[in-house]
Design a protein around this nucleic acid. Sequence first.
DNA 1: CGCTTTTGACCGGCGC
DNA 2: GCGCCGGTCAAAAGCG
Length: 142
Amino acid sequence: MGINSAAAGGSGGGERSHGSSSAAAGMGVGAVRMKKAAGGGGAKARRKVREPRFCFKTMSDVDVLDDGYKWRKYGQKVVKNTQHPRSYYRCTQDKCRVKKRVERLAEDPRMVITTYEGRHVHSPSRDDDDAARASAEMSFIW
DNA sequence: CGCTTTTGACCGGCGC
DNA sequence: GCGCCGGTCAAAAGCG
């Protein structure tokens, strides 16, 4: 078995609670930053309502599992609370601004926390190809 | 050829 | 008031 989802609460989903303490200083700090060359910075006003973020604990040896979407890595940074680097992924779909955050646990390198932010606006590719069922097990949870 | 990936730098907001 | 952290963007290079 390559995939074992231990989503705490899974669908229940109240995962966004976050301990808040640990990384505390940082969790909700610099999250909204616009372009750096916005031209003097200014004129920036985004929706005050943010998409809920779903945290999922996935047990796998690889960082990214094919959940049916295409992801493009756009950044990697190391967090203090974690001894491993955190990876940032973004959906490359046409209008899908969904963001995915992958963090590796220090105590359990084989366990990774996948945080999905935003909602997809198109259907997964797996609906067309059965072969993609590689993660069919995952779809059960979704 | 197209797309993806990698690193660095910068900034934003909060905390103390 | 200042420092700190995390997060995102930008560009370039390599590969299929």
